Measured scan of single mutants.
Amino acid sequence: MTFKLIINGKTLKGETTTEAVDAATAEKVFKQYFNDNGIDGEWTYDDATKTFTITE
């Protein structure tokens, strides 16, 4: 399955996707992406659209 990440950061904005077997696996991938890029904020997940959103 394809999961999308929408980034609404102070310095970084955009979208990316990842292929994962489930939302929990995608969450781990995206959290690592947050850490690697110094993004910290509030994030949500919409199961209907398989979209994670992080807002700094």
Rank of each mutant, 00 (worst) to 15 (best):
A20G: 03
D46C: 06
D47V: 09
T17H: 11
D40P: 07
G41L: 07
L12W: 14
L12V: 12
F30H: 00
A26K: 01
V21G: 06
T53L: 05
K10P: 12
Q32P: 01
K28S: 09
T25K: 04
N8K: 13
W43K: 00
F3K: 00
E42W: 12
T11A: 08
T53Q: 04
T2N: 05
A48C: 06
T51M: 02
T55D: 05
G14H: 14
W43L: 15
T17W: 14
D36K: 09
V21I: 12
K28R: 11
A26Q: 01
D47S: 12
F34D: 01
K50A: 05
T53S: 04
E56A: 06
T44V: 08
T18G: 02
F34V: 15
F30T: 00
T53V: 06
W43G: 00
G14N: 09
D22N: 07
E19A: 09
G41S: 04
A48F: 09
V29T: 08
F30A: 03
K50P: 00
E19G: 03
V29D: 05
A20S: 08
F3W: 04
F52D: 00
Y45L: 01
V29K: 10
T17F: 13
T17P: 02
T2C: 11
L12R: 03
T44Q: 10
F3Y: 12
E19D: 06
K10C: 13
I7K: 01
D22E: 02
Y45N: 00
T17E: 07
I6T: 04
W43F: 11
F52H: 01
K50Q: 09
E15M: 04
T17S: 11
T18Q: 04
E42M: 11
D46N: 09
G9K: 11
A26H: 01
D40S: 14
K31F: 06
F30S: 01
F3Q: 01
E15R: 03
E27V: 05
I54W: 15
T18I: 14
A20F: 04
T51E: 03
N8Y: 11
I7Y: 11
T18W: 10
T53P: 00
Y33A: 06
F52Y: 04
Y33C: 09
T55R: 05
L5W: 02
G14F: 15
A23T: 05
D40I: 13
N35K: 15
E15I: 07
G41V: 07
T2Y: 07
T18E: 04
L12S: 12
E19R: 10
A48S: 11
I39T: 06
A20I: 02
A24Q: 11
K13L: 10
K28V: 11
T44K: 07
N35F: 12
F3M: 01
Q32I: 08
N8C: 11
I39G: 05
L12G: 12
F52A: 00
D46F: 02
F3C: 02
K31W: 06
E27T: 04
G14W: 15
T18A: 07
Y33D: 04
D46M: 03
I54N: 01
T44L: 06
D36N: 11
A48G: 07
T16K: 14
T49I: 05
L12Y: 15
A24P: 08
G14V: 15
T55I: 06
T25M: 13
T51L: 02
T25F: 08
L5N: 01
D36P: 07
D36G: 11
T11P: 05
Y45M: 00
A48R: 10
